[in-house]
Design a protein around this nucleic acid. Structure first.
Lengths: 208, 208
DNA sequence: ACTCCTAAAACGAATGGTCGTTCTGGTTGA
DNA sequence: TCAACCAGAACGACCATTCGTTTTAGGAGT
């Protein structure tokens, strides 16, 4: 047998995945050919098919790696002591989107789009985002218990979901429009739906 | 000249665009071929190239139509009397995403993704979403003036942006995960960042 | 230490298919 | 009559995947 079948194979897969991510960033998912990935990673087309069943399988492998980054960050935050408010937990999540060393945001948007058409890729995204949500829910639990004045399990579930949806919006907006910073976003949302909105509800002509 | 060059040409363009939308909904943007659109609308490939310069131009035409729907709805709301809170304005925006008669959400997500690669399409999206934002800003102005206790211009701008970002998140989530309804989303966001979050801040171990 | 040996890994030309676009010839309505 | 419209075959480019060949690594035998 040639090569160290374990470490070497994993290194090759990552070498290909890293190159694929770079090409994807430049070209988008449908304008990226296997040939271009092969050129980018310095291997041949055949080498890619030795390591991945096909293009879709490579995409799934990439999708898994894409989310691993963000889940790790959230897990350490969830494990840390203290009560974290939703805003405090969203801050690092949103801030991580500006980190140049992370997988680029536009690629994630490409994967969202592709997942609508590719059911297997969709399953990967659902699984990974659910992990993200569960981490966030765990991190939110102390706050939720305090806010609910007892068992905050259901509250943590709902709020974790809503926070991630807000993050998804921020990601999409940042890729396409780049309207505002994370801090401005959190402030504006708080103003829109928080105390400020309550205070002015008496002016409303429509009502609840 | 044959045909009524004005009305007939427009009808043909819409006939093609309607068919393209149906195919796009089924296949996604990159798996949709001109041939399939031609078949769907009962015309030939040549007919499509008579009415649109190329596939990208057809996509831009579609993108414009996609947003016209939502802008109209918001404009009538903005024109109506009374002070609308952000939550009241977001409600119909979010609710419209469940309307079967509207252009389907997954297609919009496809366009977001495509806009990352296609600069001309990106320009169309920027222009249309900016219109949407401006409408929302106008509709929010009475509330913003009341909330700011004076000139709420800057507040309306910030909050309109944040509301649309939240809508973008809801759209993406609805396409991919379908976690919650519009009402649940608004409730959860309000709980996360509104009065509830403020109340529990004293429990926070991290602080501002 | 050195040499085969073997099977996996890597290569890349060839394949089969698809797609966007063009073009030519027919049709139609003013 | 004739210019615009339409049909659909043809074209050229590209792409994912395959496959026969070559290279390479590490263990067996000496």
């Amino acid at each position: 047998m040639p090569r160290v079948t374990d470490a070497h194979r994993q290194a090759r897969r990552d070498q290909i995945a890293d190159a694929a991510l770079r090409v994807l960033k430049r070209n988008g998912i449908s304008d990226t050919s296997i040939a271009e990935i092969a050129e980018e990673c310095g291997l041949s087309i055949g080498a890619i098919y030795v390591n991945f069943e096909n293009k879709a399988a490579l995409a799934r492998y990439l999708a898994n790696r894409l989310f691993a980054w963000r889940i790790e960050g959230l897990e350490t935050l969830a494990a840390s002591e203290g009560v974290h408010t939703p805003a405090e937990l969203m801050r690092p999540l949103l801030a991580s989107m500006f980190d140049e060393n992370r997988p680029p945001l536009p690629v994630i948007l490409q994967f969202w789009s592709e997942a609508i058409v590719d059911d297997d890729l969709h399953a990967v995204l659902v699984e990974q985002i659910e992990k993200l949500r569960a981490s966030l829910e765990r991190a939110l639990r102390p706050w939720a218990d305090a806010a609910a004045g007892g068992d905050g399990g259901e509250l943590a579930t709902r709020v974790a979901g809503a926070c991630l949806i807000m993050c998804q919006g921020f990601l999409a907006n940042r890729c396409l429009l780049g309207w505002m910073s994370a801090e401005e976003y959190l402030d504006a949302v708080t103003t829109a739906l928080g105390a400020g909105a309550d205070r002015s509800e008496r002016y409303s002509a429509i009502g609840g």
